[in-house]
Every structure is written in C-alpha cells, then in structure tokens.
Design a protein around this nucleic acid. Structure first.
Lengths: 140, 140
DNA sequence: CGCTCAGAAGCGACCAGGTCGCATCTGGGC
DNA sequence: GCCCAGATGCGACCTGGTCGCTTCTGAGCG
C-alpha cells in the first residue's frame, strides 16, 4: 500500500518548510493512488469526495504549490486541460488525437533531440512538460 | 509583396469547394502578413481592424475550417492560447518558459524520434502540433 | 444576367477552466 | 497553550472558446 509513499511526500513538504494541511494531504493521496493522470478538476472531485468542504481554488493552489516544489508535474495534452502526476515517475506522453489515449514512453527516447537542442540552439528543453500528439496504432 | 501568396491560398480554398468570403480572405491576409505567430484573439483584432463587423465566432470558425483543410496550423505553447500560422511554413517551436520567446527549428530535428516512435510504439507522431518547453540561452 | 440555396456570417448567450481578493481559520514553532 | 504567517473557503471574475439561431451571400446554373 502506498501509505509510506504518501508519508514520504508529506515529509518532503514539511522538509521544505511547507505546511501539511488536510487538503494538501488529500491531494497527494489522490495523486498517489490514481493509476492514471488526473486533470485538476478530477483531482478536485476526488478530494471533495474524501474530505468535506475543500474548495476549487484550494486544489488549484495546492497543485501550483506542489508543482513549484517539484513534487508534482503537469503536462499539457494539447487541447483540453492539463493533467497532473507525481514527479517521482518521469516519462513523456504520447497522446492520440483521435481516441485520446495516452501512452507513456521513457525519457531516454528524447535524449538525442535534447542534446542537439542544447548544442545547436542553446535551448535547455524541459523534458516531460509537453505531450507528443499523433495517432496510435488503432487510429492510424 | 505577398499578394500572390494570398491569391494562391484563396485559389486553394476555392479549389477545395470552399467559399471565399471577405472574412476568410482577411484571415488569410492577416496570417500571411504577420511575421510571427498569432493567437486567435490577435487574428480577430487585426481582422476587425481591416474589415468592419467581423464577429469573434466567424474568426474562430474560419481558423477551424482552414485547419481542417490543411491551410493553417495551430500549435499549443503550453500555457496560454494556441497560435496559428500558415501551413506552408513547417517547423517546430521551442518556447522559453521564462521569457516566452519562441524559436523555430527545422522539422528534421525530430526525424529520429519520429522513426523510433513509429517503429517501437506504432505511434505516428504529428509533428509540429506541440511546442517544446524549456529555457532559452538568455534565461537558462 | 438574375435565381437559388448550401453554407457562411453575425449575434449574443453560454460554457469550461482557471484566477483573484478578501475575510477567516489553523499548523506547527516557540 | 499562544501566536501569526500562511493556508483555506468563498464567490465574483476573467479568458478562451463554443453554440444555436437567424440572416445574408458566394458562386454554380439556366
């Protein structure tokens, strides 16, 4: 069970001088327990289901805070809202523009591009913050 | 002057059985004359400055139609609205998350990744529809 | 040249996703 | 336990985009 994982995340928060509030704990728990990526609104719904009276703005602010601290990351999948996941599990996203399916691929796939952008364009690519749009096998 | 370019685009429209209306012509002209990428709202503003009484919805619908026909493309730059440009000028976008600067890079840079995604993941990447987020030289 | 009508435009209401300002409450250091 | 910086709850607000409807018109055709 991911109880230790949540405890570790909570400890990380406090180690950075941040408060551990019920809302924050519930956001972390929700992200840790989900087997797929969640939009902010999905996180909100789940958090509200588990803890009474948590406001939209609180969840958005919490996600922003956790992003700033490097505990969660969000990815823009093109159209539609961004999705959030815990930062300890790094990967890129392929999103099918036809069926919306998301496939995760290892970060290593982009190493070459990353190096060329750095060498040739002085551009430090922030891996993971974007999705690759295209078509999956079923929809191609 | 890009008059021929606009005429060619207009001919392309009509060749596909689409009507050439003043609003559509003005959208094409605006995109052709801009030296950088424009958001839908910026296109709207410019179109309205040149042609009276063009409605927001018309510009959005026109951009959607032109996208469907492959005449324009739009790119999501992460946060914020999508930007539009004519499809005849293909490239990828690097966007600096600190200063917002956009750098265009040739599509060839992504050939290797494209091939690996196809071979290893059966995923046909739609090049160009995403931006690469990171930090430019000045901000890194 | 004028008729015709599918499809485009104009319009305003609406929607989703996200942000803000402000009053109140509370985690956790002392 | 006390205290207060900082988090929360709340509702108004904003931006980017969409919809349903009516009216208008580009352009094919006789």
């Amino acid at each position: 069970m991911p109880d230790e994982r949540i405890a570790a995340l909570a400890a990380g928060l406090r180690g950075k001088g941040e408060r551990l509030t019920p809302a924050r704990r519930q956001v972390l728990t929700t992200l840790a327990q989900s087997d797929h990526h969640l939009t902010a609104e999905e996180v909100l719904t789940e958090v509200q289901a588990q803890t009474a009276n948590v406001h939209r703005a609180t969840v958005y602010r919490t996600l922003e805070t956790l992003s700033r601290l490097g505990i969660v990351e969000h990815t823009h999948l093109g159209h539609g809202p961004a999705v959030y996941h815990l930062a300890d599990d790094a990967h890129h996203h392929l999103v099918c523009e036809a069926c919306g399916r998301i496939v995760e691929v290892p970060v290593t796939l982009f190493r070459t591009v990353e190096r060329r952008l750095r060498d040739e364009y002085d551009f430090v690519m922030r891996a993971r913050h974007f999705a690759v749009v295209g078509r999956c096998r079923a929809c191609a």
